[in-house]
Amino acid sequence: MPLVNGGKIVDDSFVKLAVDTPLPERGDILVPAERFLGEAEGLLQRAGRVGVIWPNNRDIAELVPYLGRIAAVALVFPTFRDGRAYSQARLLRERYNYRGELRATGQVLRDQFVFMLRAGFDAFEVKKQADAEAFMQTARRYSVFYQPTGDGRITALHRRMQLRHSEGVGT
């Protein structure tokens, strides 16, 4: 499954651990939430970056104490129809000011990229190679956004206000 990060297909430095996989000595790891919470201090002290795979039915606030020390949060789309992780992503970015990698995993398809970007995701485990290759093109599909989110894109309402004011200056 190709990983898109920073708009490009990249190698994934993280290894995903299951609940019972022996801990590798070094290297970046992605750990299931339960295991992470159980052995957080040990995990965070080893060499290599640590990320957490967080299920979409668990309160993201539980992760808050660790946000400054983890390198990645992977949120899960069990199917693309299940939109819970969008709320988790926005909370991480906008309420808890998480600035590390925010990765979309599961059934990640091309036609959800724009929503995911707007919700704050910046890394994508894309299910299909063709979708990953079309990432940049797809991300540019829209130039107008009605809702304010933490992604910094200017909303239609504010663009209108700017236009009004710039017109106002001239008259």
């Binding site: 939109g83 929503f115 919700a119 009605y146």
Partner: peptide
């Protein structure tokens, strides 16, 4: 209407 159109969080309720 505008606010709910292509909402990035609530398009897969």
């Amino acid at each position: 209407r505008q606010h709910t159109t292509l909402h990035p969080e609530f398009s897969f309720l």
